[in-house]
Design a protein around this nucleic acid. Structure first.
Length: 353
DNA sequence: AAGCCGGGGCG
DNA sequence: CGCCCAGGCTT
């Protein structure tokens, strides 16, 4: 039996029942595909349901505020996906009569849709013959055919795309694309795949040559940078001072608090730090540490400290991104997870118990 | 070509 | 702790 038929047969027996597999609506598939970028199915599934419920059509999506979109996206990470989706929804309403494109060459023009997502939406929605190449496909092809070209190099991308399109089962591209991705996710897993029950084991290069654990090859390693962000929680009656994060850094357009970033770990008894705090909040300011947290991102290790302030003064006019928000509206704002967790524990502790 | 962008799960 | 996840955008 062919490689393609083995995969499809395996898929028909072992596939999970996932909601986006019951439709060929391009908008719905777009929702699922963008949510699932760099995201596990189990993590993305509740977000897919939430978005479809809040935005049944692309017009509903386009008419929402960006803050609403980011609030629904909160906790999922890579927030530019949400902002790009919002822009694309408005683009589709304005320039495509609200009809979501389902052909590769149109899809690839849209913000937030790259080669993978254009192939996925077009094949699943219109049946167009475009091979998907995601992390699963890289892994399956690399192991089965023994390809050690780094998957994160341009040469690797080219090579794997060429092979994937050559292998594409043209009688049913959508079925084959689903099959190879599901096979990668469930059977040919990154860690400890169960090769003894694999239908392709007899012809698998990696298994034959004991290279399952070294394929696929990926070059370079991510350098993580340490950052030390000190947040100041200013409250006034039932109001709290929040800050909208701007472009050029993490968590763009999400909300946190006014802060001072330092080069290294400091405490409030650090003279230089206290000096900086007084420069911003006045000589009379009283600072007390509330809590500390280490927050991990792909490229950054963020050491976060939360401080409560009393007797502070502040020049608001210099900081247009700052706003007072009442506590009962605070949870409507999109927040990074580390901020959301802090707020839940600090302001809404009683409601949690 | 390399860097940047989150958060979670698993060995 | 390191790696990976239905990647894409910017420089």
């Amino acid at each position: 039996m062919t490689f393609q038929n083995e995969l499809i047969n395996w898929y028909l027996v072992n596939k999970r029942d996932l909601p986006w597999r019951h439709t060929n609506d391009a908008y719905t598939i777009w929702l699922s595909e963008v949510i699932l970028q760099q995201t596990r199915v189990e993590q993305g599934l509740p977000y897919f349901n939430k978005f479809l419920e809040n935005f049944p059509t692309v017009t509903d999506f386009a008419n929402a505020t960006e803050a609403k979109v980011l609030k629904l996206w909160q906790g999922l990470g890579y927030y530019s996906r949400g902002r790009n989706m919002h822009a694309t929804a408005q683009n589709v309403v304005n320039n495509y009569r609200g009809i979501f494109p389902n052909l590769h060459d149109e899809l690839i023009k849209l913000k937030g849709i790259g080669e993978y997502t254009a192939a996925a939406i077009s094949s699943f929605s219109s049946g167009e013959a475009r091979a998907v190449v995601d992390g699963n496909v890289f892994r399956v092809l690399s192991r089965y055919y023994g390809i050690d070209t780094p998957i994160n190099s341009p040469a690797g991308k080219k090579e794997f795309y060429a092979l994937a399109n050559e292998l594409l089962y043209r009688a049913d591209p959508a079925l084959y694309n689903q099959a190879i991705m599901e096979f990668g996710a469930m059977q040919c897993k990154p860690k400890s795949p169960n090769c003894t029950i694999c239908p392709l084991v007899q012809s698998c290069y990696a298994f034959k040559n004991d290279k399952v654990n070294v394929l696929p090859v990926k070059t370079g390693k991510i350098k993580q940078k340490h950052r030390y962000i000190n947040y100041f929680v200013c409250t006034e009656n039932d109001q709290v001072l929040v800050k909208e994060r701007q472009a050029g850094d993490i968590w763009q357009h999400l909300y946190d608090f006014p802060s001072l970033e330092t080069k290294e770990s400091i405490g409030i008894n650090n003279a230089g730090f206290l000096e900086q705090v007084k420069a911003v909040f006045g000589e009379e300011v009283e600072v007390t540490l509330i809590s500390t947290k280490k927050h991990l991102l792909t490229h950054q290790i963020i050491h976060v400290q939360f401080f409560a302030l009393k007797n502070y003064i502040f020049n608001f006019k210099k900081q247009k991104e700052l706003n007072w928000v009442s506590l009962n509206k605070l949870d409507e704002l999109p927040q990074p997870k580390v901020i959301h967790d802090f707020i839940q524990g600090y302001f809404y502790k009683n409601e949690m118990e």
